[in-house]
């Protein structure tokens, strides 16, 4: 591998040296930055601008020149409801179903995830044996691909799967989990907590280990009970990390798509259709391809994400300056 890269790097050195002589050392920085900036420009900033053009044009043509201007009609179509809490009263009912599904999903998923991550991190931070092993146990589903996670659980939950066999054996009786809207939604929350919990546990554990030991020693000197040192020392000192975890989980939760799409396909009906799936289906999955609606919905999602990211950056501000 290295023998392949070395000559390549030497060839690149020739034009780079010429540029260095031409521009001087400090301007050369722009040459080093160029590939990255071109990629950012082409695949991040340009799309943001174009997204506005798509959102204000109609038709199913992908070329902007062939798309008729419709003004704000896409947004009107998306938000036209007599009662926003009742998707049935909306012109674009699927959008509102996705919005409310996502809201519920994010609330439950983030709540359970932060709760269980905190519990797990607190336990892993205790004086236990084989901590590295247990940390790995909780972490490893993070590495599994969303499709693999979905298939693993689909196999367990199928009608004649192992969970139903167990329930039959206990006498409770099996349930057709993914055919029932409520259960499918609950399991979607479950598998996404299962798959991502380890990641947040890791961050919280790092936060717990950053709390200085002597604070606890002082608490023991003062004969504080373990419960008291948990609620009065650990949790307050962990609060900043908790906040970071919360915001990160919200940002990712809003964008949930992969594992649930592979798991339920958004169904039954639209019970587990989330906002990114709505965008995918309007823009790419079916004919006609309503790019305008998809882009308008993307902009609304972007608005939420930008707010959340700003909070995240503000929380992390010490890490980025300088």
């Amino acid at each position: 591998m290295l023998s392949l890269i070395s000559p390549l790097m030497r060839i690149v050195e020739i034009p780079m040296l010429a540029l260095q002589r031409l521009l001087g050392m400090n301007k050369l920085a722009w040459v080093f930055l160029a590939p990255n900036l071109v990629l950012f420009g082409l695949f991040a900033f340009l799309p943001v601008i174009l997204n506005f053009s798509y959102a204000t044009t109609g038709g199913d043509n992908v070329l902007l020149a062939d798309r008729p201007d419709v003004g704000l009609r896409n947004f009107v179509q998306l938000t036209d409801c007599t009662n926003h809490f009742d998707p049935n009263s909306c012109r674009e009912d699927k959008f509102w179903r996705a919005v409310w599904n996502t809201t519920w999903f994010v609330t439950l998923q983030v709540g359970f995830m932060v709760g269980f991550s905190l519990l797990t991190a607190l336990i892993l931070n205790r004086d236990i044996r084989a901590r590295g092993f247990f940390r790995a146990v909780f972490f490893f589903p993070v590495l599994l691909s969303p499709v693999v996670v979905a298939l693993i659980w689909k196999w367990i939950l199928q009608r004649e799967g192992v969970l139903n066999a167990f329930l039959d054996w206990t006498g409770a009786g099996g349930i057709n989990w993914l055919v029932d809207a409520g259960w499918a939604f609950a399991w979607s929350v479950f598998i996404s907590v299962w798959a991502h919990m380890g990641f947040y546990t890791l961050i919280l554990l790092a936060g717990l280990q950053a709390i200085p030991r002597d604070v606890y020693e002082a608490a023991i000197m003062d004969r504080a009970s373990p419960w008291r040192s948990l609620t009065r020392i650990t949790l307050p000192l962990l609060a900043p990390t908790m906040l970071v975890v919360l915001v990160l989980a919200l940002i990712k939760g809003v964008q949930t798509f992969d594992e649930v799409y592979a798991f339920t396909g958004g169904g039954p009906g639209t019970a587990t259709t989330f906002i990114i799936q709505y965008i995918y289906e309007r823009g790419f999955a079916g004919a006609p391809r309503l790019f305008g609606l998809a882009a308008a919905a993307s902009l609304l999602v972007a608005l939420v994400l930008i707010l959340l990211t700003l909070v995240q950056l503000w929380l992390n501000r010490r890490n980025v300056d300088g």
Binding site: A29, F40, P47, N51, G283, F284, A294, T309
Partner: peptide
Amino acid sequence: RTTVLLLVISTLMIPQTVVLVPLFLI
């Protein structure tokens, strides 16, 4: 340099999921 740093940070706010349509065009 600071401008570039800010530009790089601001791309954090543009995950692929919200620019799917124009990204597809490009």
